[in-house]
Write a protein that binds this DNA or RNA. Structure first.
Lengths: 83, 83
DNA sequence: TCGATATTTCGACGATATTAGAAATATCGA
DNA sequence: TCGATATTTCTAATATCGTCGAAATATCGA
């Protein structure tokens, strides 16, 4: 893994809320969790959480899929491994 | 490792210069390198490097010892392992 | 002790990151 | 289509971070 990509992944995790989200999703496994539930668990407003999820997604640490009205986020184990 | 400590360690590494310093020290092994040489290798002014070294040290990722006029920094493998 | 070398501390400025409120978008069921 | 639910985007305010120049501290050799 190149240095700029490593810095991006480390920066994504170097934040209390985001690290909590990531750990939660790792525990949740492949099924993942809807954004709203993550927001409640971590104690962050939905719009704020959304920006955090975008940062983790862009860093390759999590993935998302839409299911009905919800967007389900799950840990990206490949991205984790590279880091 | 608790979350706040993990965030501190990740934050310390989530920076291009600091990650470069850390990688350099890991490669350098137990002997470590003097601050001045690290500054030259990484291309940072000595005073700026000093603040970065302090951050890495406080996060438990590196150690320092004085040898004459130089201060030698080396990777802290215990701290690495915990993260 | 004095001057040279090595590193750190201090102070301040510009850049970046984090958060929140409001509005926009997407999906579903009636 | 309309209203409700779920999430995202936009914008702006505040806070934190990274960098530099200058000064301070530490060590050595003459």
């Amino acid at each position: 893994m190149l240095l700029p990509e490593a810095v991006e992944a480390l920066s994504a995790l170097a934040h209390g809320h985001r690290l909590a989200v990531f750990r939660l999703l790792v525990r949740a496994g492949a099924d993942g969790l809807p954004a709203g539930e993550i927001a409640r668990e971590v104690g962050v407003l939905p719009n704020t959480l959304s920006t955090h999820l975008t940062i983790l997604d862009h860093a390759g640490l999590i993935r998302s899929r839409r299911e009905g009205r919800s967007v389900i986020y799950s840990a990206d184990y490949d991205g984790m491994g590279e880091l």
